[in-house]
Design a protein around this nucleic acid. Structure first.
Lengths: 208, 208
DNA sequence: GTCTATATATGGATAGAC
DNA sequence: GTCTATCCATATATAGAC
């Protein structure tokens, strides 16, 4: 068992590693860089985590969203429209909050090899996306939504949010934002939520 | 000047390098692996390209789409609706055809640092996306489209196609496709085009 | 143009002192 | 728990033979 001070230090290292891995990728970052940025000795990484690989696994594991959480979050809403809107809000909030982390996730996704890491992430993401799919399918079944290509509608929702949060420099250019950090301002978060909801309202012919 | 046989060899190396870089990233791939896969001697990479970095630059440079080409391609269409549909077709075709390359591009985009490479790519992509933006803006001005959030509509179009082509393993799961290569079958290409056009038709209230 | 051999650097991991 | 020193593997790049 680790005491709370040790846990703090571990978390510090994980935070720093997450940021660096997200910016440049796993291979491009050395444990020397991580330990320098986290202001610890190089040997400490092996001491705490065993290896660079295992550190990476912990970075990924600790921040994956559970589908149980999403289900719990949306079940309080009555209509499928409100469930869907809740999902939009939640996904955009999480993606904005964890934008560093998202870079890691989608870089792993882009590798079409069957590593254990990619496998784990794919499974977890697919569980989450299934929740969205269920909501849309049920909405269609109960005549609340128009019949559409459900799978590609799910990918559309994810695609918009993902592209916005993981292609910061492009978002800056398209939206004419000077400072990259402003991309994640509340103002733009609201705008993205509004856009995505309007897109879904027309696409699914939702009567408000 | 290089003769055509030398050019062929260069192209071979570039093709192999593109595939490997796209699968694992620049740092994760050694010139040893590239030269082995391309069936050439390691020293040849330096001989032909100077360095690993310069090889990478050539891989990226040779396949960036020019906005002039897009403009030329769409100007033959009369209405803004048809121009927009032509863009959808073209983007999906190019993204499917160059899916390896897209991985490289969007991995570079995910790094929010000001490297020369990222800068170059951002500029070129932004030029291309501006063409889409112009079409939508003009369509709105000429009352062919409903007034919408143009910038985020552009990001939506890109986001859907990008997510589909660069997150193959997720696309497989969501669409229940067993073989990853089938994701790029004509059948799914058509389906994606259909979905995206329908999405835009309702979103922009296009009267067909 | 092509290859071998090698110089040089960098990174991950750990032994062992404190 | 923390640090230094070091081992070992692997990588890029190039000099020089053919």
């Amino acid at each position: 068992m680790v005491d709370s001070k040790t846990q703090d230090k571990r978390d510090d290292i994980l935070d720093v590693a997450e940021k660096l891995f997200s910016e440049k990728g796993f291979e491009a970052i050395s444990i020397r860089e991580i330990s320098k940025a986290a202001e610890i000795n190089i040997a400490m990484v092996s001491y705490y985590f065993g290896s660079k690989e295992k550190l990476y696994e912990e970075v990924v594991n600790r921040k994956l969203i559970s589908s149980e959480m999403i289900i719990k979050y949306i079940e309080q809403h009555e209509t499928y429209t409100n469930k869907l809107f809740a999902i939009v809000d939640m996904f955009i909030n999480k993606f904005f909050e964890r934008r560093d982390f998202q870079n890691i996730i989608f870089r792993e996704m882009a590798m079409n090899q069957r590593t254990g890491m990619a496998e784990l992430i794919t499974n977890r993401l697919h569980q989450n996306f299934s929740v969205i799919q269920d909501v849309i399918e049920n909405g269609i079944k109960h005549k609340e939504f128009k019949k559409v290509d459900v799978e590609l509608t799910v990918m559309t929702i994810i695609g918009v949010v993902k592209t916005y949060t993981t292609s910061c420099s492009i978002a800056c250019r398209v939206l004419k934002i000077d400072d990259p950090e402003k991309v994640y301002d509340d103002k733009y978060k609201k705008r993205l939520k509004k856009h995505l909801k309007e897109l879904l309202v027309t696409h699914l012919e939702i009567k408000l």
